[in-house]
Design a protein around this nucleic acid. Structure first.
Length: 262
DNA sequence: ATGGTGGATGCTCCA
């Protein structure tokens, strides 16, 4: 089973890129974030041939998540967090009793101080709420996958310069610490780092503002696929599709892909 | 230290 996650930054604008990914990388399940489209305007007609099963949860202009699947989805739904209806979490059950969760964690704005910046406070509260939720749900046998744009690059080599990003939202110690607690809450296994040593640089996002993203290569690994320990033995491969950053009218994020032998 | 780009929206917010 091939699972992919991609912050698409408008699914309507980049529908051709979604189709290209589906055809070239052949994911069985594709989770999107920042779809930026209300459910009634979601481009189902442009995706139904590739992904007959779809769970979408979007709103006008901002955020939005979608699960597109070749495999049957059951018990599909969505959930609100932090008292907001901002379309950041969709879930569904896959064949084999696997529960899939697609998350778009708040970006957090520019100032890494929750007292000065309500967006950063929201981000930290969101991660805390997730950690509490998973601590409550966790069982050793649970077969679960959580994917998405977590907007946190947790490891030193998940950013181009650890020292220069310590004060930059996405890599501050408080976010990394909270994401670590969230990860520990269900003993989540990082499906990509399972195959790539922590000493190796790995990115899934490059800013639009760089003159030449490829030349400067100032990336961050913000997009993740985690699995519960019960699924860890099935991890078969992982890939970050860096080349997609150079596709015409690219998203600033690239697809992250994990294969499971299930 | 600053501003750089891109998307959705509608004379600005968000990333």
């Amino acid at each position: 089973m091939r699972i992919a996650t991609w912050n698409i930054n408008s699914v309507r604008l980049r529908l051709p890129l979604v189709r290209r990914l589906a055809e070239e990388a052949t994911p069985d399940v594709l989770c999107l974030q920042e779809t930026k489209v209300p459910d009634e305007l979601f481009p189902h007609e442009g995706l139904a041939d590739l992904f007959p099963y779809r769970m979408v949860r979007g709103m006008k202009g901002y955020n939005g998540v979608a699960i597109l699947s070749k495999l049957r989805l059951t018990d599909a739904g969505w959930q609100d967090w932090c008292g907001k209806t901002d379309c950041r979490h969709a879930f569904a059950r896959l064949p084999g009793g696997i529960e899939l969760h697609n998350l778009y964690i708040p970006s957090g704005g520019d100032v890494p101080d929750p007292a000065m910046n309500v967006k950063f406070a929201h981000k930290l509260a969101f991660i805390d709420a997730q950690a509490a939720w998973w601590a409550k749900e966790a069982t050793t046998k649970a077969k679960r996958i959580v994917v998405g744009d977590f907007n946190v690059a947790p490891l030193e080599h998940d950013v181009w310069s650890h020292n220069q990003l310590l004060d930059v939202v996405s890599h501050t110690p408080v976010e990394v610490e909270k994401l670590g607690r969230l990860q520990a809450a269900h003993d989540w296994v990082d499906g990509v780092r399972h195959f790539v040593p922590a000493s190796e640089k790995l990115y899934s996002w490059w800013s639009y503002r760089a003159r030449d993203w490829h030349l400067t290569n100032r990336g961050r690994r913000l997009d993740h696929i985690w699995v519960t320990p019960a699924l860890a033995p099935t991890l078969a491969a992982a890939n970050i599709l860096v080349e997609a950053r150079a596709w015409p009218q690219a998203s600033d994020h690239v697809p992250v892909i994990v294969d499971l032998d299930v």
